[in-house]
Design a protein around this nucleic acid. Sequence first.
DNA 1: TTGACATCTATCCATTATGGATATATCCAT
DNA 2: ATGGATATATCCATAATGGATAGATGTCAA
Lengths: 116, 116
Amino acid sequence: MSPSKLETEVPLKPAVFHILLALSEQVRHGLGIADEVEASTAGSVRLGPGTLYRSLKEMTRDGLVKEVPHPQQGEDPRRKFYCITTPGSEVLKAEAIRYEQIVEVARQRHVLPEAH
Amino acid sequence: MSPSKLETEVPLKPAVFHILLALSEQVRHGLGIADEVEASTAGSVRLGPGTLYRSLKEMTRDGLVKEVPHPQQGEDPRRKFYCITTPGSEVLKAEAIRYEQIVEVARQRHVLPEAH
DNA sequence: TTGACATCTATCCATTATGGATATATCCAT
DNA sequence: ATGGATATATCCATAATGGATAGATGTCAA
């Protein structure tokens, strides 16, 4: 069974999804997550401080992410770094598949061109 | 220029996106849209009546969809049918591309397997 | 070393979005 | 004609979001 209750289910809140995606390859701190989300979505998704820190708190409580020690020494001590957990990776994958299925439907409807 | 102001921008609200997608290939009435959304997302997205009719009203005001006469005679006269407009198709495509880019990022992060 | 400015986390609040209950009307089948 | 299903529509409580603000601390330059 899961390490926490983990009643988190897809569809995820967009903010939660993007935070998990930003953490999927590396540990990041709060504002670093927000920067990554903005960069990887070409600026179309921005996390305000309210959504960002509130989400991180809830996601920590729900066991989707976990605070970790600073990856480098000499790092700005004000920063809090987070990594994705195994349950976090699971729900991230489930949500990514859901997005993929929606894109598939869009292709079937000729909203998007055929797969690249 | 557009027939209406159309300040509708991506990211779309999920409900609006799914309604546009449901209308992308054929004219449908309110509950028919909700049924199609639920079917095409394997039940993971459901539009309650509040979200459904509120969205249709706003989308009509914004010029994303338009009410049309019944496609068949003898159709239940209580039904109101909607079709997607040209501006509606444009924002649908833009949002679908945005989804596709997110899926791409997920692939780069190895959250999803390589393209099928 | 001190002052000015930037960075970072955090909370609060107003606005927006959502879902569900409810209402009303009408269709359809028996 | 009567009962149950269908359909649109509104209302309200809850949830989600973004932006303003706060407060602490780092960085940099003079």
